[in-house]
Amino acid sequence: MAELSLQGKRILVTHADAFMGPVLCEVLARRGATVMSSTDALLDPQAPAALVAASGQVDVLVANLAIPSPTTAATEVDEAEWRKVFAALVDPLPRLCRAVLPPMIARRAGKILVMGSASALRGIRGATTYSAARGAQLAYVQSLGVEVAAHNVQVNAIAQNFVDNPTYFPPEVQANPRFQERLKREVPLGRLVSASEDAEFAAYLCSDAANCFVGQVFPVCGGWVQK
């Protein structure tokens, strides 16, 4: 990993000011990539295609999509909450992929990496809307990954939880004694995975060294205690 280089690769990072965006841009650039960062919410159906068109050649798309997670009881989730979360996390993904994939397929080279959540892999009380949206992302990756693999395009996802980031674990949350006890109770590492650890793994998946992975979902969670 220390010798990994992304020299010459043009990488588009979405929601670059949220979730893993800031550290991803920093690490990918340090590894030699030309990073094109976007802070557009991508809620307009035409926005993803416009962003890709304005970015020029995209060798790697890092679909880093984020929205604060609602904590609504399932019986109280209304249409507005469901639509808002899916509009932010799910709807932009196929639109982005439809825009970047034809040139990648034509070049027989390209990667898409989705920064997802392990909430889709483990039941979390009070997170039905968010978990469902994150699960949709992962299902899309698994199917798309095997569909485009024959074109030498690799699509994968990181499903993370307990990873340091400003959207889901801001400083005030990390400083809370109850959260610190939760880490000790639920996470075998006893700490959050650092932002740089996660971003370095993402950089590896963006590199040619990871060409053998297609349609895979990689949990990055610091481990968790099964209940």
Rank of each mutant, 00 (worst) to 15 (best):
N64R: 12
N64Y: 09
N64K: 07
N64D: 08
L65R: 06
I67M: 04
P68N: 00
S69P: 11
T71R: 15
T71N: 11
T71S: 09
T71C: 09
T72C: 02
T72W: 02
A73C: 05
A73E: 00
A73R: 14
A74G: 08
A74T: 11
A74R: 06
T75E: 11
E76N: 15
E76A: 14
E76L: 11
E76Q: 12
E76G: 03
V77P: 04
V77Y: 02
D78C: 12
E79M: 01
A80M: 09
A80L: 12
W82P: 10
W82V: 02
R83M: 09
R83P: 05
R83H: 14
K84M: 03
K84Q: 13
K84V: 04
V85S: 03
F86I: 09
F86V: 04
A87G: 15
A87N: 15
A87R: 14
A87E: 09
A88H: 12
A88Q: 11
A88V: 04
A88L: 09
A88F: 06
L89W: 01
L89S: 04
L89V: 02
V90M: 02
D91Q: 13
D91H: 10
D91S: 13
P92L: 02
P92K: 09
P92C: 12
P94M: 10
R95C: 13
R95Q: 14
R95N: 11
L96M: 14
C97L: 15
